[in-house]
Nucleic acid binder design. Structure first.
Length: 455
DNA sequence: TGTAACCCTCCGCG
DNA sequence: ACGCGGAGGGTTA
């Protein structure tokens, strides 16, 4: 165990509060890590509401709630956020998903059977637990060797079924931005404009604000003060536009097979290369809103409206398409509307109706945040055989570059790899061994590629 | 169809 | 150490 820090004291308070009745007991749901891995799914840039409960303080956000920085038992990472008016806390082991909640202040604390059913419904809805993920993975793997290779270490990644409005605002915030800051923005929206649903330790937990809460004339300037930048205007304008439409307009764009919480599923249309009718329509309608381009529209369609065939193509996915799927080798170097559609359609043809889900797996596998996961695996290889690992590094870099043609950069990268391999390592890298060479090589390569993309 | 501006934070470099 | 410049999961005009 760690030494006693302010964080761990808070933890204890939390626990004792729990026994006083604020939190329900842990309950569990049978669920394998292959069907859902919350640790990955919640960190891969889909949802910005959860705060990671890591054993170390390094992820903690200094500017927001210090309460979030409590220490956790390292092997049981716990997650929590407000979902449909419930403060929900989650953790997982290889066979079960554990959950508990705080009832809204007006309720009594004894969880009844129907309360429990309600929680389970929330969890099943939010984590989109109906599709059989293991089957989907093998389906995608059988049709795509690259997916098969990459997905082996990234199992259990699902597309969350988030609230459409929340997803819309979150992804408007996501433009030109990183996950940490997006999360801060969402947190700020909740604190300043959302309703408080629970108070623990004198801390209020807030729900995400509805559109009507963001239509005030001072909202834009307020959000600017809160650090939203140019997105402040988009959010305000979009909130006004959505408020002016019929109640439930946004949710009405949902995939009827995968409707908003509490709505009964109905069959949706037939799958086509460019996606189902309803998806095309939702995508188009979302584009009318301020701050919503094709990528944000696809994110909302996929994660907020339940359209599984939606494939958001950002610069990252564009790079994956170029590197692993032979895109943009000659003519089209830039990601414009035409190449955007070409990439998305290609993945839909390859992976089918849930292409967006598969896309998310590859996306996550390439995320910097998860480099440690890859590195850890490679480290094992290294320990077994040093030579083999070295060869792997080189092969990987070379293969990636072969798809891209130019010679100078080929040389350039090789030089860089050698640099790191030899001289620079001891001083400037405070981390570890070969795994960092690998990730550094990958990082170098990524930077080079994105530079070239800009020209 | 292509390109700069938009806000802010982080990271690498001098 | 401390500041500077560039880049970053995109959209708009």
């Amino acid at each position: 165990m760690e030494t006693a820090t302010p964080q761990s004291r808070i933890t204890i308070s939390w626990v004792s509060k729990m026994s006083a009745g604020a939190l329900s007991e842990w309950r569990k749901l049978p669920l394998s890590l292959g069907e859902l891995c919350i640790n990955t799914t919640l960190r891969c840039g889909q949802s910005f509401r959860f705060v990671a409960q890591f054993s170390g303080p390094e992820i903690a956000d200094q500017t927001t709630d210090p309460f979030f920085r409590w220490q956790n038992i390292p092997e049981s990472q716990e997650w929590r956020c407000v979902l449909y008016g419930h403060l929900l806390s989650l953790k997982q082991d290889s066979n079960f998903l554990y959950y508990r909640s705080v009832q809204p202040p007006s309720h009594t604390f004894t969880p009844t059977t129907s309360d429990n059913d309600h929680l389970i419904r929330i969890i099943k809805h939010y984590f989109n637990l109906t599709p059989n993920l293991t089957e989907l993975y093998s389906q995608w793997s059988s049709q795509d060797p690259n997916f098969k290779k990459k997905a082996a270490q990234f199992t259990g990644i699902r597309i969350l079924r988030q609230d459409a409005w929340e997803a819309l605002v979150s992804f408007i915030c996501s433009s030109n931005n990183n996950i940490a800051r997006i999360s801060q923005m969402v947190e700020k929206l909740c604190i300043h404009y959302g309703k408080s649903v629970a108070t623990i330790e004198g801390r209020a937990y807030h729900d995400f604000p509805p559109p009507s809460a963001l239509t005030g004339t001072d909202v834009e300037s307020n959000l600017r003060k809160l650090g939203f930048g140019y997105r402040a205007k988009y959010i305000y304008q979009t909130a006004v536009m959505v408020s002016n439409r019929d109640q439930g307009w946004l949710d009405s764009l949902s995939n009827p097979e995968c409707p908003a919480f509490g709505v009964d599923p109905r069959p949706s249309g037939e799958m086509k290369p460019e996606g189902r009718e309803g998806y095309r329509e939702a995508h188009e309608k979302l584009l009318e809103l301020q701050g919503v381009g094709p990528k944000v529209s696809d994110c909302v369609s996929l994660m907020g409206l339940g359209w599984g065939e939606s494939v958001p193509v950002d610069t990252h996915v564009w790079q994956i398409a170029q590197r692993d799927y032979r895109f943009g080798k000659s003519s089209n170097k830039n990601l414009n509307k035409t190449t955007y559609d070409a990439v998305a359609n290609h993945f839909r043809k390859l992976w089918g109706k849930e292409a967006g889900w598969a896309h998310s797996v590859l996306f996550t596998a390439d995320l910097r945040t998860f480099a440690d996961k890859l590195a850890a695996t490679k480290k094992v290889n290294v320990k077994v055989k040093d030579e083999e690992a070295d060869i792997k590094v080189e092969t990987k870099v070379t293969t990636a570059l072969n798809l891209k043609v130019p010679k100078e950069e080929d040389i350039d990268v090789k030089v860089k790899v050698e640099d790191i391999d030899d001289a620079k390592k001891p001083i400037s890298r405070k981390r570890k061994e070969v795994e960092n060479i690998v990730s550094a090589a990958e990082a170098t390569q990524t930077r080079r590629m994105s530079k070239r993309l800009r020209r």
